[in-house]
């Protein structure tokens, strides 16, 4: 399922100060640059989340629920992870927690980033 990740993603920070640095004659060009930059960044986010979604379905959904929808209480509801809990996420995945095995040596750091992007796109708290 293709998801509208951009709709869930927080607005990009830093856009307005960048615009303020533009001179009047360059506003149009700057705006265009900003748009292209933002779009490519958003696209990269989308691609990472899509990769994360596939990884999730393969390695995580057995216990954490299809499409992150977890109603069991048996495993942690990953949508509860907050933006500042990246380290907690990585630690649990690499070292295991409770009944969860360690995925060290199975999931590469870049794949962990993709998973994190996917999970955060669906977090309860952005």
């Amino acid at each position: 399922m293709i998801r509208a990740y951009r709709a869930c993603r927080p607005p990009l920070a830093g856009g307005l100060p960048f615009l303020r640095r533009c001179t009047t004659g360059r506003v149009v060009l700057c705006a265009l640059c900003l748009l292209v930059g933002a779009t490519s960044r958003a696209l990269a986010q989308d691609e990472a989340a899509a990769r994360g979604e596939r990884l999730y379905a393969k390695y995580c959904s057995n216990c954490h629920g299809d499409d992150l929808q977890n109603n069991s209480g048996v495993a942690f509801d990953l949508r509860r992870l907050k933006a500042d809990e990246h380290a907690r996420f990585v630690n649990s995945v690499l070292h295991g927690k409770n009944a969860m095995p360690s995925w060290q040596g199975v999931l590469a750091p870049a794949q962990l980033d993709d998973l994190w992007t996917y999970i955060r796109a669906h977090g309860y708290e952005q």
Partner: peptide, 20 residues
């Protein structure tokens, strides 16, 4: 003691308040 593949994988609002 809840668990098993349906409970783990399938979204089911009816089970939102069933603790393990």
């Amino acid at each position: 003691g809840t668990g098993g593949v349906y409970v783990l994988k399938t979204p089911d609002p009816n089970l939102a308040h069933v603790p393990p």
